[in-house]
Design a protein around this nucleic acid. Structure first.
Length: 489
RNA sequence: CGGGGCGUAGCACAGCCUGGUAGUGUGCUCGGUUUGGGACCGAGAGGUCGCAGGUUCGAAUCCUGCCGCCCCGACCA
């Protein structure tokens, strides 16, 4: 195996795949389209889970768990939903194997299920079937539930983290007495996703609405956050759906309101998946490996001792122990790497590959001078600092790095967002990449034509886009506001 | 499902065209010297060459069939 990663600019895809594997995040599994998330990758995912879960709880949500299997009849109930997911479902048809006369095992034809079970591609149907039993009165509402789960979508082509057959996510499913309340919930959760992306992942996003063509199957309105990757392609990073009364009607869920009238509750659902791991990699990493924002780094500081003799190491340990304690008491996760199987240079490269935000180096020279070497992963800069007061310095540095990674990503996003007025400009800019802001006449036909001709899709209609009359770049018809186009993952 | 490519040591590959009984890098094991940016020297372990059949005195190499994987498209909250 070569020691160098491929470079980002030469072959982005190869760089990404190699990085995900080499940094110890995940690898392909022998099972079609599925991946193995390795301990280091999972540790980052756990930090993401924790951050999101805290935000969900702070807004009154609770966790619950619903079945993996969806009876086919459930999936059929909401027509658009059924149509949208039908093409990508794994289906359980039998419940038993038996010995094959020719060796090995075979499906027992006697054990055919009367009704096929679908491995959930999403849980709206099982959950609304359950909510039927939970909701009778306005007093039962709202229901604010989230589940952490795995889902299966049988996509034709897969990519580590970005589109795997099985993936992990959270899906929130809420029920409300009024339309207004449900819309507010949808928007609130989108806001939480945006806050998570920007404050935790240090990844700026555009919040917006999907066009009807890009909407979740069965939703009245789909809100999303869209991020820009370093190769100029967009990535849908999270979605929040206003489901109207589609599911409550399909599953015949009704409640008696304060006015003693029967009503259908209003629903939302919102999800964010392990795809965010891919986003994290593609948003910040460089040719030396991952760059993790401190808030999501499983290890925030690594200390590498540099020594020749065993007694030198003892001296270093003596010096470093109180600093480790101090860092821990400041809430910083720190690892001291005295593994003598590898040389310092090897360790430096390895921790850079893993994106550890700060590396401290300490050797005899430092012990004499009362100093320590501080290396930043994000800027790849090194400086020698006095060892006194180093813990507090590191504490501040964590915040500075978090901010600096965000600023860099924001600058990249801004520099790669282009406003275009004409079809020619549009075509050439889409080829180059980035977010392309342009007028659109609002029709599905135009949207489809543009997609066919350029492979660009409307990523979203930004929530903050201002009303500004113009002409559609494709049809020349009137357009009330600009939308964001891009090629997407 | 279409178009292209690949299957040889843990990993990455060469060898195949022109058949002669398997090699390089890296990783691994042991010993020694090293240690402030991926160390060096020496010794060693590790492969039914994807599977099945055929041609041949002889097949990783040629032929046929099958299986698997990757890339590009179609598909994709």
């Amino acid at each position: 195996m070569s020691k160098k990663l491929p470079t980002r600019s030469e072959d982005y895809s190869a760089w990404y795949n190699e990085l995900v594997k080499r940094a110890g995040l995940a690898e392909n599994s022998p099972v079609r389209g599925c991946m193995v998330i390795k301990p280091y990758g999972y540790a980052i995912w756990e930090k993401m889970q924790r951050a999101l879960d805290d935000m969900f709880k702070a807004t009154g949500h609770q966790n619950a768990y619903f079945p993996l299997f969806v009876p086919k009849s459930f999936l059929e109930k909401e027509e658009e939903h059924a149509e949208g997911f039908a093409k990508e479902c794994a289906v359980v048809t039998h419940y038993r194997l038996k010995a094959n006369p020719e060796g090995g095992l075979m499906v027992d034809p006697e054990a055919k299920l009367e009704e096929e079970l679908i491995v959930r591609p999403t849980s709206e149907t099982v959950i609304w079937n359950t909510y039927k039993g939970w909701i009778q009165s306005w007093r039962d509402l709202p229901i604010l539930v989230n589940q952490w789960a795995n889902v299966v979508r049988w996509e034709m082509r897969t990519r580590l983290f970005l589109r795997t057959t099985e993936f992990l996510w959270q899906e929130g499913h809420t029920a409300h007495a009024t339309e207004q309340e449900a819309i507010e919930e949808t928007e609130q959760m989108l806001g939480i996703y945006a806050e998570f992306a920007e404050n935790w992942m240090a990844m700026p996003v555009i919040q917006g609405l999907k066009t009807p063509a890009e909407r979740f199957a069965g939703a009245e309105e789909t809100y999303c956050i869209e991020a820009l990757m370093q190769d100029g392609k967009a990535l849908q990073a999270g979605t929040s759906h206003f489901l109207g009364q589609n599911f409550s009607k399909s599953f015949e869920v009704q409640f008696v309101g304060k006015d003693n009238k029967l009503e259908y509750p209003w629903a939302t659902s919102w999800g964010l998946s392990t795809r965010m791991m891919g986003a994290l990699v593609m948003a910040h990493s460089d040719d030396n490996g991952l760059v993790l924002p401190p808030k999501l780094a499983p290890i925030q500081v690594v200390i590498v001792p540099i020594y020749r003799q065993e007694e030198d190491l003892v001296k270093i340990v003596e010096k470093i122990n109180p600093i480790m304690e101090e860092l821990k008491s400041l809430g910083i996760t720190v690892k001291f790497d005295d593994d003598d199987k590898y040389k310092p240079g090897y360790k430096f490269a390895e921790y850079e590959l893993q994106g550890i935000p700060v590396r401290l180096g300490i050797g005899m020279r430092d012990l004499e001078n009362g100093t320590i070497e501080v290396a930043r992963r994000d800027t790849l800069t090194k400086e020698t600092k006095p060892i006194d007061g180093i813990a507090n310095y590191i504490k501040d540095l964590m915040n500075e790095i978090q901010q600096s990674i965000y600023d860099k990503a924001l600058k990249f996003q801004q520099e790669n967002t282009f406003v275009v007025e004409t079809w020619d400009e549009f075509k050439s800019q889409i080829e180059i990449g980035g977010f392309v802001v342009a007028h659109w006449d609002g029709t599905a036909e135009t949207e489809e034509k543009i997609k066919q001709k350029t492979k660009a899709t409307i990523r979203c209609i930004p929530l903050n886009s201002i009303e500004m009359a113009g002409k559609c770049i494709y049809s020349g018809n009137d357009s009330p506001k600009q939308v964001v186009f891009a090629k997407a993952y």
